[in-house]
Design a protein around this nucleic acid. Structure first.
Lengths: 188, 188
DNA sequence: AACAACTGGTTTTGAGTCGAAACAATATTA
DNA sequence: TAATATTGTTTCGACTCAAAACCAGTTGTT
């Protein structure tokens, strides 16, 4: 059984990524978690950009996330836009400043260096085994997947390049289905 | 290029592992980092069980690590044994209590669940691609590998089941070469 | 042998993380 | 309409972390 070895390797990889993220964030005065939140907000869809969604994604309490958001707001890296239908919720929109920051720092230089040393075939192999591991981890523990709409069972194709979400009952564009969603359910 | 996807997946995996580690550690009143230190000390060799080695492994400052060690010592999860040759250094030996704790909590239940859902072939595949990614990451960024002695260029076979480290100029046993070392250098 | 430079480790300080719990406001359900 | 659930904020206390000042022992140089 390779369980021990796989665990150790993933743990180490995660650690090295975090060390690099700490270093990268420091240049902008950001903590790893703050960078993580901005990254999440840059790839999630319009139904998943709320405080509670971030809370679920990071597995932290809402109080903790509320603090983090407050700091990011003060640093003008995101704005709170209140929801039109539900007055309790705010949508967290990252500012152009934050978008530039993420583009600059994620993936980290360390990771890009490594990636450049891998062939396309190797990348393909790593990519698919990692995906297998992550999917297995999520499904065997009944956790939320936070996957892309295009692989979600609620998503239906409609017309030529249009899509439709059967959960929120709204049409989705080509761009929409490439974002991740807190309601994502694997389609098989 | 799969760079973005691989980064995102590794980051997510690391995050889920950390969430689980936080939960697991909480049962014993331990923080993720503290668990991490104990885990490291349980798999490193006698040349790598010092504060500075932990510092390098975790990529933190020595002041921070010193704090963490102090707490673990107070909780009787490790003892400081001063080095015989160098009076500045202490060796951090984890106690039986800590060994039992690690055996109980690492890998986390979450991870074992996932592992049980994977075939041996799948585990083999994940294992080798992860190893490739980690090795590439380390080598392309000139980072310390913290690998096992058996794959180290300083390690030489001597006799039937004996080994010899050409760096510290001391013999190593069969068990020794399965531990990780701060001086590890890949042998090719 | 003496001095400088270096290394292992500790302590203090201040910003930030994090969970727990109490709280307010809005939505939903009965 | 009343009870309940959900989104989000605030406060508190324990802990993480880096930076910097510091001490003690070791190594290198003259």
């Amino acid at each position: 059984m390779k369980t021990q070895f796989i665990y150790h390797t993933i743990e180490r990889l995660g650690e090295l990524l975090k060390i690099a993220a700490r270093k990268a964030g420091a240049e902008y005065g950001l903590q790893p978690v703050q960078l993580e939140v901005l990254h999440y907000l840059s790839v999630c869809n319009r139904y998943s950009d709320t405080l509670m969604a971030v809370t679920e994604y990071l597995g932290q309490t809402k109080g903790t996330v509320s603090q983090t958001i407050k700091i990011l707001e003060k640093k003008q890296l995101l704005d709170k836009i209140s929801d039109l239908k539900d007055k309790r919720v705010s949508h967290l929109k990252i500012t152009p400043k934050a978008i530039a920051l993420i583009k600059d720092k994620i993936p980290t230089t360390m990771f890009i260096n490594a990636s450049n040393h891998l062939s396309l075939t190797q990348q393909q192999g790593i990519s698919s085994t990692l995906q297998l591991l992550l999917t297995t981890l999520i499904q065997s523990n009944n956790m939320k997947s936070f996957g892309h709409c295009f692989s979600c069972r609620y998503n239906a194709k409609s017309g030529d390049s249009g899509y439709f979400c059967n959960l929120v009952k709204e049409p989705l564009t080509e761009k929409d289905v490439l974002l991740i969603c807190r309601e994502h359910l694997s389609n098989k």
